[in-house]
Design a protein around this nucleic acid. Structure first.
Length: 358
DNA sequence: CTAGGATCCTGTCAGC
DNA sequence: TGCTGACAGGATCCTA
């Protein structure tokens, strides 16, 4: 990671001018953050906590002050920081959360000089974070704290910022021994690596009337899939997202599990939405999706598998992307009708575009 | 029990 | 140019 970051930084903040949102943190991003933060804060003492938004910190901040970080764990999309005083911090980034660490690597970081007394009053602009992950945005390279900063942790030798544009995420201290009994964590289903196709199939049967995409987004059914990876896994398994869960075969459920593993492994490998992948070597903003997405936000483009057009629709109240040809509606009731409608809409859309002379 | 809609929140973007 | 409304979405809550 450090090589990429150094490459990035020499271009400076002024380079990041084009605005283009990436997407939300899901399991691979949280795992990437866990690995990155582990290197920064393990063994470090929290000297102070500033809560800038009450909603974002659930509980008394005093219980973590003075404690040292022992280890970082992940449960689905939740990050858990265990401290040495019997307290753990459960952190959920939801859609727009970010964790940005400053300092910590002072030995390797030429920007952290004594003259930079700004550490106590804010950081950014001329410095670079030691690690940044989560919802990709300017905050990865902006001055901090800023108006999206919700919680600020002072560590010996560095700072950790919890930013969250939409305030859906949270930091919550709980006794370490009660982490696994936390209402959210306790309800999580196994991750795709700990589940067989048969088990997933059995769960799909319990929600047989709902669209398969809605069911696999449920963390109590299978843990870790969000909107991006649900679309990608369904594409991998060639399953139409609107198909009724009860009509997915055992074989398809097996493919779906394999697809979920494959797309998330690929994303973890590429670093998820960390600073290194978000900011490209030429200093421009990267859309980290382009590293692995086959359908997500690729509507109107060609399917890399069959050449047909990727479409965008709405399933379970979520923007949903799929290949009309690969993810056929075959074998499910009402499918032909839906397919015809989609085909005609797609053709109509194409007609409009041709008329506009693109 | 399940299915589906509203809710939270801030910021972007298209349309007027 | 500035206003308005639709949209983005993870998890939870509520209703039928």
């Amino acid at each position: 990671m450090s090589e990429l970051v150094n490459e990035v930084y020499k271009f400076g903040r002024a380079q990041f001018v084009c605005y283009n949102w990436g997407s939300m943190p899901e399991l691979p991003e949280v795992e990437t953050i866990r690995r990155g933060l582990e290197k920064c804060i393990t063994g470090k003492k929290i000297s102070g906590v500033r809560v800038l938004c009450d909603k974002s910190f659930i509980g008394p901040k005093e219980v973590v002050e003075g404690a040292k970080v022992q280890r970082l764990r992940r449960f689905g999309k939740a990050l858990v920081i265990d401290l040495d005083n019997g307290v753990s911090l459960i952190i959920h980034l939801r859609m727009t959360g970010q964790l940005i660490a400053w300092g910590f690597l002072s030995g390797e970081n030429p920007q952290q000089k004594k003259s930079k007394t700004s550490v106590s009053s804010g950081v950014g602009a001329d410095d670079k974070p030691a690690f940044a992950g989560g919802h990709p945005s300017e905050n990865f390279v902006a001055k901090l704290p800023n108006k999206q900063t919700r919680v600020e942790f002072d560590f010996e030798g560095g700072k950790l910022f919890f930013n969250d544009q939409r305030k859906f995420g949270f930091v919550k201290p709980v006794p370490t021994e009660e982490v696994e009994q936390d209402k959210f964590i306790a309800s999580l289903a196994p991750e795709p690596w700990d589940m067989t196709g048969e088990e997933l199939w059995a769960k799909l049967q319990r929600h047989k009337g709902a669209p398969v995409k809605a069911v696999i987004l449920d963390q109590k059914v299978i843990c870790g899939l969000g909107n991006i990876y649900a679309d990608e896994a369904l594409y991998f398994a060639k399953i139409h997202p609107a198909r009724k869960a009860g009509e997915v075969t055992r074989e398809e459920a097996e493919l779906l599990i394999r697809g979920a593993r494959a797309v998330m492994e690929k994303s973890i490998e590429s670093g998820g939405s960390t600073m290194a992948t978000y900011v490209k070597a030429d200093g421009t903003r990267g859309d980290y999706l382009e590293l692995f997405a086959e359908v997500f936000r690729r509507e109107g483009k060609e399917c890399r598998r069959c050449g047909a057009e990727i479409l965008k629709t709405r399933v379970a109240g979520r923007g949903t992307h799929y290949c009309l040809q690969c993810q056929l509606c075959r074998g499910f009731s009402g499918g032909d009708k839906l397919q015809r409608k989609e085909l005609s809409e797609a053709l109509e859309l194409r007609g409009h575009r041709n008329k506009e002379g693109d």
